[in-house]
């Protein structure tokens, strides 16, 4: 550990703003970049599940009529 206190970590001898801003502007897009395809795949998966359910319920409806 190089720094003595939390406020020293935050301040970084006057460079804190630049350092923390660049880390924030890196990790935010990275998190979004990881989350978007996971969400997209889940949505596609749910679409297929719903489609299968629809396909399964169709012959049952035809019998009841």
């Amino acid at each position: 550990m190089y720094f003595d206190s939390l406020s020293a970590v935050w301040h970084m001898d006057g460079h804190g703003f630049y350092v923390w801003l660049s880390y924030a502007l890196t990790f935010l897009p990275v998190a979004i970049m990881l989350w978007l395809p996971i969400r997209r795949q889940r949505q596609h998966w749910q679409w297929i599940v719903a489609e299968q359910r629809r396909a399964n319920s169709r012959p049952a409806d035809a019998q009841s009529e």
Partner: peptide, 25 residues
């Protein structure tokens, strides 16, 4: 890696702490 670069690594003797951006740049 980010914790190591931000908290543990020593500062650059000419650039001070701003050089810590190197670990993502």
């Amino acid at each position: 890696g980010a914790a190591w670069g931000l908290l543990v690594a020593p500062p650059d003797f000419r650039q001070g702490n701003s050089y810590r951006i190197i670990y993502i740049h």
